[in-house]
Design a protein around this nucleic acid. Structure first.
Lengths: 115, 115
DNA sequence: ACAATATATCCGAATATTCGGATGAGTCAA
DNA sequence: TTGACTCATCCGAATATTCGGATATATTGT
């Protein structure tokens, strides 16, 4: 129960929902997410760590970058939940804007660097 | 998004999950829930108010009592979510114990009073 | 109107969460 | 090894949440 509460508590924050909404589109690194959300890197990293410890996402090191993606394994055990709220997430205006900012940023990033 | 976060934040507390688990069995009044959870009435009432304002449950006055039940109308819009986590809720040990305490209490309550 | 019961709200104290700048740790190329 | 870069963690200050006793409100029966 405590575990389940922790799980949902992680969803109880707009910034973290924005992150999840973006990750529904596929794997992204921290600097991508930082650019899309237009928030300090430390803030984004902290929220990602929390989502990971709550079992919603997973991170993998790829050289200098850390790529995060949705956790869909058995650990998610509430993949149905994410599936269920997926539509709600995508329907929000923040979600749309974040994705636009991300797309614009990804074009600038073609050379592989972060800024 | 803010709304959605508020929605989930309400689920991010063990006491509130215990309340939801009990209400899955049907409508109950505050004193029933207070007895089942073995917590102060003010605490239970506060959590119920929060769950209600988050759109998870609904309350109706029935004389001196206020009966709470799960919100399954369109306002719930995440009934799927509750449906999805229903199993998880029922599987916890707290949930089983709460229900036992409730059943034992309901027997004592046959006369209609609360203590 | 009054008393009894059930519920909601108020209150301060304790605890937890959040933020973002600063700093630490890890990785790679030169 | 040095420097550039990405990301994680530390830190104190601000804010939010939680608790339960006390109190207010509501409803019913007398």
């Amino acid at each position: 129960m405590e575990t389940l509460a922790t799980r949902f508590k992680a969803l109880g924050d707009p910034t973290r929902l924005r992150l999840l909404a973006l990750l529904r589109g596929g794997e992204l690194c921290v600097c991508d997410l930082t650019a899309a959300l237009e928030l300090p890197q430390s803030t984004v990293s902290r929220h990602l760590a929390l989502l990971k410890s709550a079992g919603w996402i997973r991170g993998r090191r790829g050289g200098v970058w850390t790529y995060y993606s949705l956790e869909d394994g058995p650990a998610a055990s509430g993949a149905d939940v994410l599936q269920g709220i997926g539509g709600m997430l995508a329907a929000t205006p923040e979600s749309s804007r974040d994705r636009e900012v991300l797309e614009a940023y990804l074009k600038t990033k073609a050379d592989g660097r972060c800024d």
